[in-house]
Each structure stands twice: as C-alpha cells, then as structure tokens.
C-alpha cells in the first residue's frame, strides 16, 4: 500500500490521476473503519488533510463555497447562520471526536444513504464540485448519488467541495435513532423553506440513496405560493398531505435498525414536525434555526 500525502490541490489531482485506485482519505471516520475492519485494502491511501484549500469556505457570488475538508465541528461553529440545516445535521453526527475529524466532503465521498450531511445538502439545493486534471464540473447533489455507497465520481476525480445558497428562510433537520446520541439514523429528514421561491427536501436512510421528495416539494410550493406574504396558519390537511408525499417518496427497506413501515411512518412524523416548526418561524418572521 502507498500513503500519498499531497500538500496542494494540484498535487492531489495529479496523484489521483496517477493512482486512480487510490482511496481518498479525509477525516477517516468512514475510510479508516473500513481499513481497520479489513473491508478496504486499497493500493493507496490519498490523504487530503494536508491541503489548505480544502479547509476553507467563502462566499462566491450568491452562493457559499465550502471546501471538502471543512469539519462538522466547523460547520456547526462557523456556518450555523448561513446553512442552518447542515449545521443541525452536523451537530447530530457522532461525537465531538468524530465531528472534529469528519467532513461533509468525506460524507459525500462515502455516499452512504445514511450520511447525515446529505438531506440538508439536498434540501438546500447544493451542488458538488468535482475536479480532476481533466477539469472541474458541478453536479447537483441529487444527481451525485448513483446507488448505495456509489456516486458519479470518476476514478480520477476528487471532491473539491460543495456550493449552496445561504438560507433565505427557515431550515430544519430531524433524525430518529434508537439511541440518544452516537446513532446512525434510522431515518432523517431536512426541510428548507425559500420564501417567495419554493421548498427543498432531503430524506436520509430511507432508500438506496439519499432522496428528494419532489412531489412533496411541488405540492408545498404550490400551497405556499400565496401564503408566503400572508404568513397565516397552514391548514392541517396541507401538512398532512405534505407528510404523505414525503413518506411516499421514500424507498425504505427492513434492516437491523428499523423496518420499512417504521421508516415511512417516522418520515411522516418528521415531515409534519419540521414543516410545523419551519412555518411557525416564517410566520414569526425569524430566519429560522434548527
């Protein structure tokens, strides 16, 4: 095995081009588990933690560009106002030890359906920045996932970071697990309201990939179109229908952590709760928090 430790982004792209089967390594919270358990035995590990560019974030036009190496701990402490759902999800990741190392970029790289960063990135309409020596491209998050733990990343590509617009309205993330902390989501859901514009959703752990609930977004955007300004109470049936459409978008399975029925049910509950909270924030005129 080789251990590659580039110190610049250009070196990293060069290394990945030279060793396309190198396994990129960031916080190690997924990759090192696989190495420790003998599930991954790559020809090379490509450590990206020594690259300063990956650890930065900055506004870029009307979006924020967040490097793949920004840890969950920093997403919480530095970006909670601009990416509240992502910060909320980051708070639920593992423990302080894990949040100090793990990154949303690494979460994308693992492409686990249970990745906590994915639902807020989906709800926030984020794009993933991929780059190789051949050039850079952007992929909408919902198009990034290709299957359980698979993505559209080409063998010579690395994840540079992601771009997302700062929240213009309330955002929420909710997660259910069988333990109070340190838990892999049995199911998770993120909701982003964009007043005057529309709605974003993201579902975790309830399908082969993280999912958006398109029909639910469309339905709710229609219902909210003339309510953004009025800021009046949402009728119960609207909340109920939204929750049904969210649950309907899921493709859950039975596994050790929960049954498909349970996941669908929990999604309904999470969709109701997050919409109720988010709409209340909107009516109060607050920017929303999670």
């Amino acid at each position: 095995m080789r251990f590659l430790r580039p110190h610049t982004w250009a070196e990293a792209l060069g290394a990945k081009a030279e060793f396309p089967d190198a396994l990129p390594l960031m916080g190690g919270t997924d990759v090192m588990v696989d190495v420790n358990f003998g599930r991954a035995r790559p020809n090379a590990l490509l450590d990206l933690t020594a690259i300063p560019e990956l650890r930065t974030w900055a506004p870029d036009g009307d979006a924020l560009r967040v490097g793949a190496g920004v840890t969950y701990a920093r997403l919480v402490s530095e970006l909670a106002d601009r990416l509240p759902a992502l910060a909320a999800a980051s708070r639920t990741v593992g423990s302080p030890q894990i949040r100090n190392r793990g990154t949303a970029g690494g979460n994308l790289g693992s492409a686990s359906p249970a990745g906590d960063a994915h639902p807020p990135l989906l709800a926030g309409g984020a794009e993933v920045e991929l780059e190789s020596v051949r050039g850079a491209r952007r992929v909408a998050v919902e198009e990034f996932f290709a299957g359980p733990k698979r993505s559209v990343l080409e063998p010579d590509e690395l994840i540079a970071g992601f771009r997302a617009r700062p929240a213009t309205g309330p955002q929420y993330f909710a997660k259910v697990g069988t333990r109070n902390a340190m838990v892999i989501a049995v199911c998770s859901f993120a909701l982003a309201l964009r007043p005057g514009e529309g709605v974003g959703t993201g579902i975790g752990s309830a399908g082969p990939t993280p999912l958006r609930a398109y029909a639910a977004e469309e339905f709710l955007a229609g219902e909210l179109a003339d309510r953004w300004e009025k800021r009046d109470a949402l009728p119960g049936p609207v909340i109920g229908e939204f929750a049904e459409l969210v649950a309907g978008a899921a493709r859950p399975i039975d596994d050790v952590r929960g049954t498909a029925d349970y996941r669908a049910h929990v999604l309904r509950v999470l969709a109701r709760r997050t919409l109720t909270w988010a709409w209340a924030d909107h009516c109060e005129g607050g920017a929303g928090c999670a």
């Binding site: 333990r179 109070n180 340190m182 838990v183 892999i184």
Partner: peptide, 24 residues
Amino acid sequence: VPDAEFGGFLNHDLAQYHVPANAD
C-alpha cells in the same frame, strides 16, 4: 439479532449493538 441466513449475529459491532451512551 441472529442472522438466519448465514448464522451468527447481524449487528456485531458497537455501531449496531447499542451499549448505552451517556446521553441515553
């Protein structure tokens, strides 16, 4: 959880077998 198909237990690590954490 027994693995009916292959034998042994399905949730054989601390991520899946939930020893209580402080917050529980």
